[in-house]
Every structure is written in C-alpha cells, then in structure tokens.
C-alpha cells in the first residue's frame, strides 16, 4: 500500500520533474518503469489532472461529533 499520490503534482518540493525521476529510477519497493518520454509526459498530465480534482489530505476534513465530515 503506497503513499497517496493525488496531490503529488502540486506538493512542495515535488512536481513533474520529481515524478519523472521517481518513475524512471524506482525505489527499493517500487520497480523502475521503463517508460518512454511520451509515456512519462502522459503520466505527468494524469497526475496534473487528478491534482486538479481536489485535495486528498485527510487533515482537510473537519470531523463532527455526529460522525459526519465536512471539507474545510
């Protein structure tokens, strides 16, 4: 179960170059994907699009006593 990547595109210190480097090099737990430059660009555009859909950080939700939540 990896980290939430919804807002990786706009996260401070991350962004398109970071995403490309991460995917190309990989980590101990994530394989290096042998993607072409076009595929990397498409992947970055996908992250840009999901970033624009909203904020996924659970800290952005106000938790009410009746069990409901509201977006702050």
């Amino acid at each position: 179960m990896g980290p939430d990547l919804t807002n990786v595109y706009s996260a401070p210190g991350k962004g398109p170059a970071y995403i490309k480097a991460f995917v190309q090099v990989g980590t101990n737990v994530m394989p290096a994907f042998n993607l072409s430059e076009t595929e990397l660009d498409q992947l970055v555009r996908f992250f840009e699009r999901i970033d624009a859909s909203g904020k996924a950080d659970p800290k952005n939700f106000k938790r009410n006593l009746n069990g409901t939540i509201e977006y702050k």
Binding site: M1, P58, I69
Partner: peptide, 15 residues
C-alpha cells in the same frame, strides 16, 4: 462512520 473513515481510509485497517 465518516469521521473514523477519514483516519482509516488508505491504511491497513481497510486491508
């Protein structure tokens, strides 16, 4: 319960 789900979503509790 949404107020609990905010904590547990995307964690091993769901698993």
């Amino acid at each position: 319960i949404p107020a609990i789900n905010v904590y547990t979503h995307g964690t091993y509790i769901t698993v």
